[in-house]
């Protein structure tokens, strides 16, 4: 009898201890970032480009690539999700697409970089912002598909029936009733997937590569915050390391704010 209770205590303590380990690492990493980031940050890094020791062009470049990827991935991913949920009647194709899209979501991002190198960089003969955009788009599509699929499945069948009763055509019912009803969840999904791709490094390393200067030309090598962090952190001089910390801090703040913002929208709804 006593042994059972003791064992119970031990297991519950171990489980609490695991949660503490998880939290400890979160605070350790965030704490380090805060201390290092705030001590190395100057406001001039937001007005200077990498060539003058700032991150202005890097932030702009990273956002342009992530936003362009969003512009491609959202319509494609949403339409695929709409096909799965509204048109397919859960046929064999839908089953395959749904599961393979989930598989693609976990595909190694570096391999997507290699793929884009082959179909873009190798063909045009140089690195370019479009390569980064294509790579991020490929990463983002499955996330949007899965979100759309899940969110549309939450819309009650009666909504669609009401639309049919009103004589609406199928695509109008989908766009004006079903998608509208799922709007909040979809927005959250898009924000979370944006937060995920905006912090990606591996698919950009040899697609968009990096640029010390500000450019808006996606045919050029394109400035990237994450690729710069990777480079700067391994340079021997302290100034580069400091800039890498400041950039990491800015990147993490952006990612976490978008992430929490996305969650906050859905929470309000409940």
């Amino acid at each position: 009898m006593k042994k059972r209770l003791l064992l119970n205590k031990i297991v519950l303590m171990l489980s609490t201890f695991s949660a503490l380990i998880g939290l400890a690492f979160l605070f350790w990493i965030l704490g380090t970032l805060m201390v290092k980031g705030l001590s190395t940050m100057h406001w001039d890094i937001f007005t200077n480009d990498l060539v003058q020791g700032g991150i202005r062009n890097l932030l702009i470049g990273q956002f342009i690539m992530a936003l362009m990827a969003t512009a491609f991935a959202v319509p494609l991913g949403m339409m695929a999700g709409i096909y799965l949920r509204e048109y397919s009647n859960n046929n064999k194709l839908a089953m395959i697409v749904r599961n393979l899209s989930d598989v693609m979501m976990s595909a190694p991002s570096i391999v997507i970089g290699v793929f884009v190198y082959a179909i873009y960089v190798d063909k045009v003969g140089h690195f370019g912002g479009w390569g980064g955009v294509i790579a991020l788009t490929i990463m983002m599509i499955p996330i949007i598909v899965s979100t759309t699929d899940n969110m549309l499945s939450l819309v009650p069948k009666e909504f669609r029936e009401a639309g049919i009763a009103l004589g609406g055509s199928k695509h109008k019912i989908i766009m004006q009733i079903v998608v509208k009803a799922a709007k909040v969840g979809l927005t959250t999904g898009i924000l979370l997937s944006f937060a995920r791709v905006v912090g990606e490094t591996a698919p950009l390393l040899f697609t968009s590569a990096n640029n010390q200067f500000l450019t808006f030309n996606l045919n050029d090598q394109f400035p990237s915050l994450t690729v710069s962090i990777y480079n700067l952190a391994t340079y021997p001089d302290q100034a580069s390391k400091d800039l890498a910390w400041a950039a990491s801090f800015v990147l993490t703040v952006i990612v976490l704010v978008i992430n929490l913002g996305g969650r906050y929208i859905t929470r309000n709804k409940d």
């Binding site: 319509p75 494609l76 991913g77 949403m78 339409m79 695929a80 709409i82 096909y83 799965l84 509204e86 048109y87 397919s88 194709l93 839908a94 395959i96 697409v97 393979l100 899209s101 598989v103 693609m104 595909a107 391999v111 997507i112 290699v114 793929f115 082959a118 179909i119 490929i138 599509i141 499955p142 598909v145 055509s169 199928k170 695509h171 109008k172 989908i174």
Partner: peptide, 26 residues
């Protein structure tokens, strides 16, 4: 409506194309 449906089917199939593309290109 037809265009909308076809585009949604295309988007779904695109995922398979990308996957097959990655395998074959590599």
């Amino acid at each position: 409506g037809k265009l909308f449906k076809d585009f949604s089917l295309f988007s779904a199939v695109l995922i398979l194309i990308i996957l097959a593309g990655i395998f074959s290109i590599l």
